[in-house]
Amino acid sequence: MNPLSACLLVAAFLFCVGLAGALSRSSAILVLAGIELMLGAANLNFVAFWRYGSVAATSRVHALTGIMFVLFSIGVAAAEAAVGLALILAIYRHAKTSDVTEITELKG
């Protein structure tokens, strides 16, 4: 087992922890946190392939592609968290709960 597959295994486990949280927790905030963990695991994959992949070492042109992907992914994840939490606040104010098993309708 080389460092690359160790990184990939860690990322896979983080992804699955996030998936388990998103599937099994009933608080909407924790569902969002689980999705953030899954995005973080994907970022770890990008960094691992950038660091250990053989493409980056051979070609100068694409040497920074992995880094760029992670930067933009972090930006999109932050945007997603902001809108998601604002939505949770709006729903909480309306339905007086943030339990995803109790919020069954969108109609106000």
Partner: peptide
């Protein structure tokens, strides 16, 4: 991951410049 070619390739030692 464990059965793919990825776990057998030789990894680069020094990180690419960033």
């Amino acid at each position: 991951v464990m059965t793919s070619r990825v776990s057998r390739i030789a990894t680069t030692v020094a990180p690419p410049s960033n």
